[in-house]
C-alpha cells in the first residue's frame, strides 16, 4: 500500500528562461549522436517518440543549462502527457520555479510565455536523427 508523503515544499527560485524542449535521454546518453545532433528539426520525430514514451523532457537554455520539466501550467503529466508532447523541439519562453538538487535542475513551469515553434532548423546539417526516424519512401 502506498501512502502520500507529507506535503512539504522545498525552497525554489522563480526564473524566466528561454530554450528548446528536448529529449533528455538522447541528449545525455549520446545514444543517437552528439548533443548538437539530438535537438531541433533533425531530431523532431525522435523527440516525439521519447516524449510520448514518458522519458523526461528538458528545457535546454541558450547557455547550455538543462532544466528537467516536471509540470507545465496545470498539466503535471510530464511522463508522456499531451502538453510536453506538443512542445517537442519547440523553443519556448517559460516562467516557473527552479529547484536544484544533486546536480540537476528541476523546473515547474507556471506559464509558457511564448511558444516560438521550432527555431533550430538543423536538419540540413545532421540529416534526420536517427536515420530511421523518417521511413525510407523507396522501401
Amino acid at each position: 500500500m502506498s501512502l502520500p508523503l507529507a506535503g512539504h515544499a522545498a525552497e525554489g527560485t522563480r526564473i524566466q528562461v528561454t530554450g528548446e524542449i528536448i529529449d533528455t535521454w538522447c541528449y545525455y546518453s549520446g545514444v543517437m549522436g552528439s548533443p548538437d545532433a539530438v535537438v531541433g528539426s533533425a531530431h523532431h520525430t525522435c523527440a516525439l517518440w521519447c516524449s510520448a514514451g514518458g522519458i523526461p523532457v528538458g528545457l535546454l537554455a541558450e547557455d547550455g543549462t538543462v532544466y528537467m520539466v516536471l509540470k507545465v501550467g496545470e498539466d503535471d503529466q510530464t511522463a508522456g502527457g499531451d502538453t510536453t508532447l506538443k512542445l517537442a523541439a519547440h523553443t519556448v519562453e517559460a516562467d516557473g520555479m527552479l529547484y536544484e538538487r544533486d546536480g540537476l535542475n528541476y523546473l515547474v513551469v507556471s506559464d509558457v510565455v511564448s511558444d516560438l515553434d521550432i527555431t533550430n532548423q538543423n536538419h540540413d546539417d545532421y540529416g534526420n536523427v536517427p536515420p530511421f526516424s523518417i521511413p525510407d519512401p523507396n522501401k
Binding site: 507529507a6 506535503g7 515544499a9 516536471l70 509540470k71 503535471d76 520555479m97 538538487r101 515547474v108
Partner: peptide, 10 residues
C-alpha cells in the same frame, strides 16, 4: 513534484 512542491497524490 511532491518532493519539490508538496503536491502529493497518493
Amino acid at each position: 513534484l511532491c518532493t519539490f512542491t508538496g503536491d502529493c497524490p497518493a
